[in-house]
Design a protein around this nucleic acid. Structure first.
Lengths: 236, 236
DNA sequence: CCTACCGATCGGTAGG
DNA sequence: CCTACCGATCGGTAGG
């Protein structure tokens, strides 16, 4: 490592690819605040201090830029929510973490304009095409991941057999989307507390008696957050 | 009435005002499909076969056009949902009707692009200004109307005292918004059944024993719908 | 990655 | 309510 200069390190990623990544990082921020149509090539070029055509050379069309931007947002979503939850025990523990981390990602404003995918969904749900298909596909796979975790919890006896995983995923997903809506449109700071409380009650209702103790109280979730602010040494 | 010609009848509404209303009806449809920014003066003029400037003369700016369009959408929302529910008994009956009629208005595609306000909220929640303020104000007053109906049901003994009206309004509102999202993004035809089931269970959980019988089953809601399709003679 | 363009469309105005 | 415009910006291209 000693003989490799910093400039050579940077070259391990080709120059063109690095520029592309920088463009996409800025694009994700811009699209989250202004929408995927508001993400214009001119504004993006200006934000990056480069020419429109220089930027455009990295993408074949505006649609390809939009798709690459969505894929970058997906990578962030996976890193912030999917991966951390995947490291936990399957069943109720992981399910509650998926929802808690999703809420926390909205609360921490990972994207300026709230959940990137909720905004993109509302913008493109009526416009057929590759962009809409990608947003719908990603949204559906996240909803199905929640449903699958409910099903697993049921399989290992944490949820009772009467629980309908599709219905339950619908309701849990609804809580998080409502929190995103209420927080961003109404500046409702209590939105996350309400969503966590709604999730907790829904889990309690579905849990078998022996699994009840696995469900974290909503207050725990908040307290953990404040503690994390005070000390960075915790793992979370 | 006999001596008043049709042309004189029409004049009871000034000519300019009638044109304005025609513009706004088209504007609501266009905005519902393409968003409030996608609602451009040029496209709207073309859809109405009139000149841009002729149309623009009715509004001082694009923002005023957007605001007038939102107010027109609000009138439709009130006519389709608020008014019919208001004619019913207060408490659980009216509360369940508010949610059922809201779901039905999405299902019947009163606006092409789904709930007008959900789309407008996602588009403008990050853009400060009069448009955002109007959307937020209308959304909040609808949420508060649900909350107030929960509170009333509690006051007259239909809901138990342990119920938190804010929490409950959050969850009921979430069900309808999730149905709108799932139906339009994922083409999920079962979205409304899931939302109605979620609402019903939430109401059952909150109801006192004597009020339980007032809650309509989700199946009733669907059956009523199919009957309406077969025969138009029913009142609803 | 740049300069220098293209036609189309944007919100808005002048003047009638 | 119209024609005829305005400067700005859109997505995209030619040619280097």
């Amino acid at each position: 490592m000693k003989e490799i200069s910093i400039s050579k390190m940077a070259r391990r990623i080709p120059r063109g690819e690095r520029t592309r990544q920088q463009i996409l990082e800025t694009a994700v921020d811009l699209a989250s605040a202004e929408g995927l149509e508001g993400l214009t090539i001119g504004r993006l070029a200006q934000a990056l201090s480069m020419s429109k055509s220089g930027l455009f050379a990295h993408f074949g069309s505006k649609e390809e830029l939009q798709i690459a931007t969505i894929e970058t947002a997906r990578d962030i979503f996976v890193r912030e929510i999917v991966d951390p939850a995947s490291s936990l025990d399957r069943g109720i523990t992981r399910l509650q973490a998926m929802l808690d981390k999703w809420l926390s990602y909205v609360e921490r404003r990972v994207f300026k304009g709230g959940c990137f995918f909720a905004a993109a969904a509302a913008e493109f749900d009526g416009r057929p095409g590759a962009v809409r298909d990608l947003i719908a596909g990603l949204s559906k796979s996240w909803l199905k991941a929640i449903e699958e975790e409910v099903r697993h919890a049921q399989r290992i006896g944490q949820f009772s057999l009467g629980v309908d995983p599709v219905q339950m995923a619908f309701e849990l997903h609804a809580m998080a989307q409502e929190a995103n809506w209420s927080y961003h449109l109404l500046d409702d700071k209590l939105a996350f507390a309400h969503a966590r409380e709604g999730v907790r009650r829904r889990l309690e209702l579905a849990a078998t008696r022996s699994a009840l103790s696995m469900i974290q109280s909503s207050a725990d979730s908040s307290r953990k957050k404040s503690r994390r602010k005070r000390s960075n040494s915790e793992k979370q």
